[in-house]
Computed example of a mutant assay.
Amino acid sequence: MKLRRPPSFGPLEAVASKLGALEALATPHGVDRYLELVHPMLTVRELRAVVTEVDRSTADSVTLTLRPTRQWRGFRAGQFVQISIDIDGVRHTRSYSPSCSQYRADGRIEITVKAHPEGVVSQYLHTNAKPGLVLGLSQANGTFRLPDERPERLVLISGGSGITPVLSMLRTLSDEGHAGDIVFLHYAFTEADVAHLAELRGLAARHPNVRLVLAYTKQAAGGDLHGLFDETHLAEVAPWYAGDAQTYLCGPPGLMATIREHYAAKGIEETLHTEEFTPPVLAPLDGDVSGTVTFGDTVVENSGATLLEQAEAAGLAPEYGCRMGICFTCTKVKTSGCTRNVLTGELHTEPDTEVQLCISAPVGDVAIDL
């Protein structure tokens, strides 16, 4: 099945499509800066989205339905998009995975945002989002997605807010009429913490090949499983998982680390596909941290933290999206010095090369064009 083109925004977009020639006249701001004064969804270049529905189905999450502008090219189930919003005059960008099917008929997308205690954007959206709110939107990106040839057997595992990309996969497979075995295993504190619970139960009820398994880590009753992940959980609900099945996993670091270790121990790690949604843990450098980090006109002592963290500690506000190296929003030019990729340990010594601030730590003196 092909991705469906989202419906046109109407006469406003018809006008916008004819205004490309005005770009040169609008320099230095670009024609979109003037068009947004007429209507914030009237754009020539920029991709945006307007909130059309708001659902606060759990106490600490909000699901937003978004209608993109005409530039939207669709997405593959499991991918993520970047959402941008101005809060108190500062532009913030975050990455979220659509939770809807990639075949949604009206071309709209759903994102579910968990309100983290320290989350500026998530707290703002949870409290203030309402229909009519216009957000910046990126095209979809990411390699966490189903293969074109769908596996005959699938295990979809999620925990907490990691439910969104695998729920998108389940909805997409359901729209395709996929007949293979699917086990959807979700971990949550209690039943009240399960986002999209009614949708999940409805999908399982309508599709006999889908088995919904809810595992509650703090609720002793009501779920199908209880407690943290244990290899007996998979043996019970998907005894064929170590055979010809493919597993897709997204969740908190503890859950993901445990499942990775289990799959590696069984020698089936190639069947496990994962998506991170929390920043990587920074491994300490060998030896003492030394040197300075130069961000344009700002010079700070090297603390050993990532370049993004050190820039923020210095009072700077570089743009970023995911904080985990998947969206490239925070990419800047390193003019001199050596940096270490905190995910791989790889060192980068070449001058005038692009580095991702969120996953790069300085080794000695480093200068960044910020």
Rank of each mutant, 00 (worst) to 15 (best):
M1K: 07
K2T: 08
R4V: 03
R5I: 09
S8P: 12
F9Y: 10
A14C: 09
V15P: 07
V15D: 02
A16Y: 13
P28H: 10
H29E: 15
G30P: 06
D32P: 14
D32V: 03
D32N: 04
L35N: 15
L37Y: 04
M41C: 12
V44M: 03
L47M: 05
V50I: 04
S61V: 15
T69G: 03
Q71S: 07
Q71A: 12
W72S: 13
W72K: 14
W72T: 07
G74Y: 13
G74P: 14
G78P: 05
I83V: 12
I87Q: 03
D88M: 14
R91W: 06
T93E: 10
Y96D: 01
P98W: 11
C100L: 00
R104M: 14
R104P: 00
D106R: 09
I109T: 01
V113G: 02
K114Q: 02
L125R: 10
L125S: 01
A129M: 06
K130V: 13
G136F: 09
S138D: 10
N141S: 15
P147F: 08
E152R: 13
R153F: 03
R171F: 00
H178S: 01
L185T: 14
H186C: 04
F189Q: 12
E191M: 12
E191D: 04
D193I: 02
H196L: 04
L197K: 13
E199D: 13
G202N: 13
P208G: 09
N209K: 11
V210L: 01
R211T: 04
L214H: 06
Q219R: 06
Q219W: 11
G223C: 11
D224M: 08
L225K: 14
H226Y: 08
L228K: 09
F229N: 00
V237H: 14
A238C: 02
P239G: 05
Y241D: 02
A242K: 12
A242M: 00
A245R: 11
A245H: 12
Q246G: 14
L249P: 11
G254H: 08
R260S: 06
A264D: 15
G267K: 15
E270S: 11
T271R: 13
T274L: 07
E276D: 08
E276K: 15
T278F: 09
V281R: 13
V281Y: 10
L285Y: 02
L285E: 03
D288Y: 02
T292F: 03
V293L: 00
G296C: 01
G296M: 02
D297R: 05
D297H: 15
V300C: 01
E301G: 12
N302W: 05
T306P: 02
A313D: 12
A313M: 13
L316D: 00
A317Y: 08
Y320L: 09
C322M: 06
M324T: 08
G325Q: 03
G325I: 07
F328W: 14
F328L: 08
C330M: 12
T331D: 02
V333T: 07
V333K: 15
G337H: 07
G345L: 07
L347S: 07
T349Q: 15
T349C: 03
T349D: 07
D352F: 09
T353F: 10
V355A: 03
Q356E: 10
I359W: 03
V363S: 07
D365I: 15
D365Y: 12
A367P: 00
